[in-house]
Design a protein around this nucleic acid. Sequence first.
RNA 1: GGCCUCGUCGUCUAAUGGUUAGGACAGCGCUCUUUCAAGGCGCAAAUACGGGUUCGAUUCCCGUCGAGGCUACCA
Length: 457
Amino acid sequence: MNKVVTRIPPSPTGRLHIGTARTALFNYLFARHAGGRVVFRSEDTDRARSKAEFEEEIIEGLRWLGLDWDGPISRQSARTERYQELLHQVIQSGHAYLSKEPAKDDPGREVEVVRLKNPGSEVVFEDLVRGPINTHTGELGDFVIARSIDDPLYHFAVVVDDLDAGVTHVIRGEDHISNTARQILIQEALGAPRPAYAHLPLILDEKRAKLSKRSGATSLMDYRAEGILPEAMVNYLALLGWNPGTPQEDFSLAELAGAFSLEGIQKAGAAWDRAKLLSVNQRWMRKLSDAEYAELVAKQPGREESAEGAATLEHSAASLAAKPPIIGLLKERAQTFNEARAMLAGELKCLFETPTLDRAQLTAKEAVAGSTPSYLAAAKEAIGNLPADADADTAKTALMPLADNNPKEKGGRGAVLWPLRYALSGQEKSPDPFTLISILGKTEALARLEAAIALLG
RNA sequence: GGCCUCGUCGUCUAAUGGUUAGGACAGCGCUCUUUCAAGGCGCAAAUACGGGUUCGAUUCCCGUCGAGGCUACCA
């Protein structure tokens, strides 16, 4: 029995695209599920557009996701002799020929391209996702397979590479369906075996067009820098166009490799849904330990930080790690680490610095003029009786009766709770007052109440 | 235009001849909280259309419409 070999064949002509990452993931999952191999090759035959930095980003990005591959990375640019050898072979065997013709980009110049002698046959291949696909290759004509005898085009290089690597399964985007027939023709000219094909549905944008730069962030690294977890990205990507056939929604990479099969692949294109990605990400963020969480808040991989900003974040991460309740708040609220950082500097700022209070805000919910100071005084007394390390529940038990006992005509709970929360936070939006007390500590909470009372007095 | 592929709630999807067409994300409502989130409960929301086949079609067949892809001396 043939051992499964799949391939990850990115072209280093741009940043790591989401679609490239998902295709790589599916190739990885299929191979790992089958106990086979995945090879990585850089399709850099387009010298003008290929760049080493793009290749580095692609490798870094796929590794970040947790993918790996077997054997060394192969590069098409390093295989020109092999292509040349086989180009000669197909010419000698009569399956292809050299053709002198005017250059496409410059009709005044004559070039000698290699064209495949197209038998014009009907090519039928079995797509593992879509079933049999039939192509009349006559329309293709004698298509060009190399710009010159030593400069192969994509289709030829791909076929040779797959042949040499012993690729058994070609899993790629649906946009390659129409390319398949001509690659099969090249295989036949070469006498190469035909691998199995599986074409994945494309990732679409909100408008159901092929996901492109204009439809939002398409670069994997941008998501990394934003504070998306690799586990979340893998989870989301896998479920975009594939389903396990069970209700399970949370999958680690290892679980995916265990559950993956081509039967679960969808035929229709799948629209990118940022909101869902964020929701998946939040679930994975919540699974992190407090230490891991604090670490990532401070040092998001791929995120550029000014020296000053980095120092500040590092500092807050250290203090964060020591304050699990704050991490609890972040886990409750933030969907990305960028959001978590923004909250630390925004709605959670009152946890780190003494707020500046606004008199009007403090009495905003007052039903009986001038009653707020007495509520604050009562709250202060209750807080004073709290144990030093009171948690939010304890604080609530001690303080809630004050609010509950305030009659409706005097503004009820709100008249008490609002000034209390505002005095502690100085913010229109913040966690509830009991949580604030538990995090701030008794001493700081008392000081803030005193400041509020003084402001009104 | 030609060729190819696809078509279940807004989105990701489950159900392949018999289900009140299920779940998740988003939305909305209630609750909790008189802040903001989170949580709990609930509501709304789909088989593109038209013909067949069948006792019965989301499911099988044909057509229409719609969407996407390919149509390079790019990959």
